[in-house]
Design a protein around this nucleic acid. Structure first.
Lengths: 208, 208
DNA sequence: TCTATACGGTACTGACTAGTTCCGGATACC
DNA sequence: GGTATCCGGAACTAGTCAGTACCGTATAGA
């Protein structure tokens, strides 16, 4: 990524860089980012949170923007895997199965990070791309697969606007958390699925 | 508001303060806020944009946070009036009538201001309240009235989740602009009304 | 063992900014 | 006309922070 590249140079002498510190520093960066936002975050805060020296941070990333870019990009590979969303046999079952506690927690953190960098997104295309790839796209992709399966099963019309359907849930969650300041819980998400997403998709329970 | 209060003191001598400058400074503040965000904004930028001296700004507002709070709060009274939304006789007609160019432009600016202060909202309850009162609530109220009329007319079921229905459009717009970086146009909004909002509301055209 | 580099930590530099003060000129009340 | 306050503008103060340099210590290869 943007991380300072040392590979390819001559085999260096002296103590080896402890790459186990990399993810710790990146995680600390995301924590501080979520708490204080882009401008509010200082490298000293990150170093202190990661119990590292400031020089240790600058040995790996050349500047604050590069550290943040890398931290945001690394959110992409998270503990929750969105590439193979649950398959329960029904659209409603799949959507409800997406509402799990770890997914919720991770989503909330990603949203807070997003809130911290939103104002930069309009001015830094590279950061914008990283944020979308890490935060927005995984969920959208998972929803896309779920809706495509529903179309293949004949649960919803083939001409449904899947693109927009995929964004309803993430958009409502983001709006609720960032604009209204209300945390989302399982109950709200399931109510959203039943009252908004499924009706908008033109869904009928497969068996009466 | 938080503006430095000079009323109630003795009738002061000397040149009067030119209160025509107040809205100009507040507008400049909102412009800079939308362009650079909360932390990126400096009082010098605001003064330069308003063609005012920095002292002129500090004579009216005691600090940067108070200036921003006041500027955000003053967005509430905008040129577009949401208190009496259009009444066309049908739910779809009312919703479509809300999609007007001035409304769109104002909404986009408000969203950019919101993007500039989102990261502060979690840490400054007063600013959060002002932002919600100025940006979120007017639109929500207008939608609420429109949906209530639709219920009264029998266009949509009386037990519809109006609260959530009201937030669909604003949430999708915010998501599209802030997260995806795609500007909204009339076409997208009307497609959203027809494909998402009305189906979710359980709406049927009043006459076949 | 020697050397080069890593580590956590501290101190420093240069740039920037919130907020204050003062200037010369304008304006409104006495 | 005198005086107190306004105006735009510029200079100044104090504090913060990105980025650099250096400390003593730790560790890996020669």
């Amino acid at each position: 990524m943007t991380r300072t590249d040392t590979t390819g140079t001559r085999p260096r002498l002296g103590r080896k860089r402890d790459h186990a510190r990399d993810p710790e520093i990146l995680e600390a960066t995301l924590d501080i980012l979520a708490e204080t936002g882009y401008e509010g975050m200082t490298i000293d805060m990150v170093a202190a949170r990661a119990k590292a020296g400031k020089a240790t941070v600058y040995r790996r990333w050349a500047s604050k923007p590069e550290l943040i870019l890398d931290a945001v990009a690394c959110m992409k590979s998270s503990e929750v895997d969105f590439t193979s969303p649950p398959s329960t046999g029904t659209l409603r079952g799949d959507l409800v199965a997406m509402v799990k506690s770890p997914t919720l927690r991770e989503g909330e953190r990603k949203l807070k990070v997003m809130a911290g960098i939103v104002s930069m997104i309009a001015r830094d295309p590279e950061l914008a791309a990283a944020a979308r790839a890490a935060i927005v796209e995984p969920r959208a992709q998972a929803n896309l697969i779920i809706f495509q399966r529903a179309i293949d099963r004949g649960e919803i019309p083939g001409d449904a606007d899947v693109e927009t359907l995929c964004t309803i849930s993430p958009a409502l969650v983001a709006y609720r958390v960032l604009m209204l300041g209300i945390p989302v819980d399982r109950e709200y998400l399931i109510a959203t699925i039943d009252k908004i997403v499924l009706p908008a998709a033109g869904w009928q329970p497969p068996r009466l």
